[in-house]
């Protein structure tokens, strides 16, 4: 269970997050949407105490993050960022083993290796085990990064635009993995740019604008034309998608005329 109460944070004197409160429970996928610069990534940094909050609290299973050691936090919360490339020739297994960092004292145990193998199995990366991380495709790499997060045995999985650099097959692949983890009892909070992916995969959506939470609730409650216009400053139409049983957000654009030719 992740609970955020009246959280404000920023860099220097600049406030990037203003009085944010939200809750995410086991089995729930919570999407964070909002325009660039609205504070989405800052929120994830503050949850993991990489950035100290100005005020407010973050509670993980009822424990205040500010009173936890960084290794303690890393045992509870894993973060998957958008990793485009790693330029050092580690093997895939080494990279996944790095997820055990908060647990390892001295050198890794048999248990660590078992957990790493298990994480690779779940993410369909076990066959890549001995490959060099520098030689993977974008989709494979992102799956390895998720395997690393699973190796942390986290209660909470935070994702920061994990798929915006991937093709559509890999996007779906990654989100299916994440959804599955959530169904198995993980708390998942994901920053997502693609509103349609968010509508399909999220149980709950939080819309941020200028560091403020302007709407939160089910996709149907949040993804309304007026909310989206307010946050993104564009006109959209939201129509129900009967095939996927979710919503479909389409920007309303003026037709392009031949004058462009």
């Amino acid at each position: 269970m992740l609970e955020i109460r009246d959280l404000s944070a920023g860099y220097g004197h600049r406030h990037v997050l203003d009085q944010i409160s939200l809750k995410a429970s086991e089995g729930e996928v919570v999407g964070i949407i909002g325009p660039n610069g609205s504070g989405k990534t800052t929120l994830l940094k503050t949850i993991t105490k990489v950035l100290e909050p100005i005020s407010g609290t973050v509670l993980i299973d009822g424990m205040d993050v500010n009173e936890m050691q960084s290794t303690q936090i890393a045992k509870k919360v894993a973060v998957v960022s958008q990793v485009i490339s790693i330029n050092f020739e580690f093997t895939v297994e080494d990279i996944v083993l790095m997820g055990r960092t908060p647990y390892i004292k001295g050198s890794e145990t048999v248990e660590d290796i078992n957990i790493v193998t298990d994480a690779m199995e779940k993410t369909n990366t076990l066959f890549l085990k001995d490959r060099l991380i520098t030689q993977l495709s974008g989709g494979e790499l992102q799956r390895v990064i998720i395997a690393r997060a699973f190796a942390q045995n986290p209660k909470i999985l935070l994702l920061d635009e994990p798929t915006s650099h991937l093709d559509i097959t890999n996007q779906i692949d990654i989100f299916n993995l994440v959804k599955h983890a959530s169904r198995k009892g993980m708390v998942v909070v994901a920053v997502i740019h693609d509103l349609n992916l968010a509508a399909y995969y999220c149980d709950k959506i939080c819309l941020l604008q200028d560091g403020k939470l302007i709407s939160a609730g089910t996709p149907g409650q949040v993804l309304t034309p007026s909310n989206i216009e307010r946050a993104f400053n564009i006109t959209v139409e939201v129509i129900p998608n009967e095939i996927t049983n979710s919503l479909y957000v389409i920007p309303v654009l003026e037709p392009l005329h031949d004058t462009l030719h």
Binding site: S70, D94, M98, T101
Partner: peptide, 20 residues
């Protein structure tokens, strides 16, 4: 040695993995 390995992936990533 291990901390330096993890830090090669970037300081932010290393922090997320609990490295001071």
């Amino acid at each position: 040695a291990w901390s330096l390995n993890v830090m090669l992936l970037g300081e932010e990533q290393a922090q997320y993995l609990g490295i001071n």
